[in-house]
Amino acid sequence: MTKPVPDKAEIALEYPDKFYVGTFEHSSRFEAHLDGNGVALVLERPGTEDVRKSVHLHINFGLLAGILRELAGSVAAIPKDDIAHRELLASALRELQEALKTC
């Protein structure tokens, strides 16, 4: 089930001969779920053919764990006085941790 994007995502794909960039904001929607191998993420921007776009991404569990470790190592980049974003991330991680324990 898709939900509204609560903040913003910027996506860039770079190939040797092409460069694609897209932004997904509040008017966009997202879906994220775990499957047997990892995380599936879909970002969708609805609209007419000239503005409509979507990104589908699948990240296996090993890579996701590596990404989370890298993020943990770079938390200092979030200013200490940015309590709102720090708490938002901490709350979401607590929910994920609890869900992993109960299944």
Rank of each mutant, 00 (worst) to 15 (best):
M1P: 12
M1R: 11
M1H: 13
T2K: 13
K3C: 02
P4M: 10
K8L: 12
K8P: 00
K8Q: 12
I11P: 01
L13W: 06
L13H: 13
L13A: 14
E14V: 15
E14Y: 10
E14I: 15
E14F: 05
Y15V: 02
K18L: 11
K18A: 14
F19E: 13
F19C: 07
Y20W: 12
Y20N: 06
F24W: 05
H26P: 00
S27K: 08
R29E: 07
E31Q: 15
A32K: 03
A32L: 06
L34F: 13
D35V: 02
D35N: 15
D35H: 07
G36Y: 03
N37Q: 14
V39L: 14
V39S: 03
L43V: 00
E44T: 06
E44L: 10
P46A: 04
E49K: 11
D50S: 13
D50T: 10
D50N: 12
V51T: 10
V51N: 02
H56Q: 09
L57I: 11
L57S: 09
H58E: 06
H58D: 04
I59H: 05
N60G: 12
G62M: 08
L63S: 13
L63Q: 14
I67G: 03
G73C: 00
V75S: 14
A77L: 10
K80Q: 11
D81Q: 04
D82R: 00
H85T: 15
E87F: 07
L88K: 15
L89M: 14
A90W: 00
R94V: 04
L96D: 01
E98V: 06
E98Q: 14
E98Y: 00
A99V: 02
A99S: 11
L100D: 05
K101Q: 12
T102V: 11
T102P: 01
T102M: 08
